[in-house]
Design a binder for these strands. Structure first.
Lengths: 229, 229, 229, 229
DNA sequence: AATGAATGAGCATTCATTCAT
DNA sequence: GATGAATGAATGCTCATTCAT
């Protein structure tokens, strides 16, 4: 757990760094993590050299964007858990932030490059663990309160979320927005106690998800890009 | 309505063609539709020139694989509709063939190349239309029989299916298989009448799906490759 | 009427650019405009990537070489017209610069690629127009002075020049040099008043040449590459 | 001087051979000697395999076409020399057959492939020699009759012809036809005694032309393709 | 530290030629 | 003998990454 304690960046350098991450986030969503590096540089308004000075290769940039996303998410999760007494409301609100979750959970789980990039990034793993811990606690409280069917675990939720969030709506598309809202609501309905059929297998927990992420048991999750091209 | 009536292929050529499609199908799933062409050729056990003789460019190959997939699917749909009297059983069985649907519904909806490749392929569109017609009829019969909530249309189903099918299990992974079975069962639960909350918007029908496919209102569906990165 | 006002190139980039154009000019003459791009790069002493950075494709390179040639030619024409009082001497001197004209008039008129490359290059057209305007004026003055037969127009001259210049001598070949000098002198004799037989048709002017260039009425001029084989 | 005495071809094989040569001749003119082999095969209405059975590689095909052209030309030359008493008329008629000469003199003198193909083809050389012998004799008789300036030799004529014939008109183009007719007439005027200025160097004879052809002293003649692309 | 120029490995595609049917 | 399928070498072009200014 190496904490790289480098000299704090100069003001302009910090600004560049932030612009690059922001530009990369947008390009990653719009085009994919294989977007040409100089397009990112151009979008960030810096030279390609500057980009590479900050992030020695694509992998580092992906890691940085992912970490940035997860930090925002974890922060939000902490705040919701702390401030919202009703776990069902908190969980719902948290999952609804899925548009941002998108990158954290999906983008970085999809392409071979991205997955490899992240695998050995302890900072990311930590942040992800913390986020999931909150989700797990909220889920358990929901189940204890009878708001969510009892036969699932956090992993079931996460996987469903990962699936649905692939179809996140594109900015400013009304039909897409509507379709996604319904898709999301349908997903939430699947977790109601009243929906419960007898599920096969056993509850999937976060350990299982991590296993799948690292060993690639699902086509679109973890090791392999199901349709990267 | 067959337009180009070409001489039937020689036996060896036909075999090569089939090997190429089969190899491409697997590589497309494993690596993505942007897998290098010569990897496909190598996997098919033919020279790169042979691949290009059969499929003048990547786009043609994608089209051929998609059409092949859809033909299998449509055939299965026809058979189920004809032979299975209970619409709920038929729909369930049809959706469970999702492992094969995967390529038809997902692969070809994901990457920019693939989407472009397919857009102007009337044969594919026809096959897709027929498949969806069967799904729509089965769905309606399920709803009339009270087996499925009445507030959804075929598009809602298709999109959920598209989402879930992204996480299709990899061959021979037990955990993945189990996780996917649960995911799929959860999805089916979302469509039960007992699960029904009030959904936002209006039922999404196949017209809407086509619109989304062609105009790209959802990130992972139609125009843009979120999976690419 | 300069449209794209790009930042002036860095010193080293400018040097590379010039080396590439110079190398391309030589290779185009020696091998043809379809010489492999990396041979040009090698001859210029740069990487293939550098070549492509400066000239996004073969077409752009051909345009750049052509423009460069024409600029030199037009400059010479302007100087001769300004400084030489005797039009016959000026015209003769101008035509004798045929070794350089070669590329401007011939190279770029021969191959399909080259012709297409140049068709939509207004800068080249402008330069060519200016050069031809000078030639036309000199020719008219020669005819008024009785130094050239009156039954021809600039187009006749240009076409003859285009034909003869195909056989420009190779550097350092004595026999070739001599043969070409004679060929050139014979051509000039054809334009003398004393040579005049009754020519068929009507004087061919520059409009006609442009028409032929763009619509390809002559095998070796404009549309098609007879020289290509 | 190997006379390959192979068994005479079967009737259908002979027909194929002729169709291929005819198709190749047209494609060579229209596109160049680097036209794809299967385009030639398709134009000839035979399979690519058949083409290769008759002509083991491109080089052989070029040789065959060239020989065929030259045989026709030499035949015509012999006939004109034999039947036409006035040498000026005979020479003029012979040169006017330039549209056919085109391939013999020009096509095969231009591209690197073609030149290499022909260099070691004794049959072609023989035919060419005979043709040139006729031209030389006619020229000498014209000069003795005072119909042509005395300060030139056959080589001067051939080179000028080679130059002008590059711009042979395309079929059915009226303007091209007219322009070429004038170009040709201007060329003939250059050889009139009345046109005679003092030419540089010494008369270029056929030996010189052969030297140039084989050693490449002129850019567009012999070794090198001036603008093959 | 920022910039953008240079490099070359990598991939798509074409086409000459060989070979199985 | 005819056919056209198979092969792979050659070449255009892109883009990640390094390095001079």
């Amino acid at each position: 757990m190496q904490v790289e304690q480098q000299a704090p960046l100069r003001a302009d350098a910090r600004r560049n760094r932030e612009q690059i991450i922001e530009a990369a986030r947008m390009m990653f969503i719009r085009i994919g993590t294989d977007v040409p590096m100089d397009e990112i540089a151009r979008a960030a308004g810096v030279g390609i050299g500057t980009l590479y000075r900050r992030f020695p290769d694509r992998s580092e940039l992906i890691k940085a964007v992912s970490l940035d996303n997860l930090q925002r998410m974890a922060e939000m999760a902490r705040r919701l858990e702390r401030d919202e007494p009703d776990p069902a409301v908190a969980l719902d609100a948290l999952l609804h932030s899925i548009r941002d979750l998108y990158l954290s959970f999906v983008m970085t789980s999809v392409s071979a490059v991205a997955v490899r990039a992240i695998k050995d990034a302890p900072a990311i793993q930590e942040e992800r663990d913390e986020l999931l811990a909150v989700v797990s606690r909220l889920l358990r409280r929901c189940q204890e309160a009878g708001a969510v069917r009892p036969d699932i675990a956090a992993g079931d939720l996460v996987l469903m979320l990962a699936a649905v969030s692939r179809l996140v709506p594109v900015a400013d598309d009304e039909l897409g927005e509507m379709a996604f809202q319904r898709l999301f609501a349908l997903m939430m309905d699947a977790f109601r106690p009243t929906a419960a059929s007898v599920l096969p297998g056993r509850p999937v927990d976060y350990q299982d998800v991590e296993h799948l992420r690292h060993h690639g048991g699902l086509a679109g999750f973890g090791r392999i890009a199901p349709a990267a091209g």
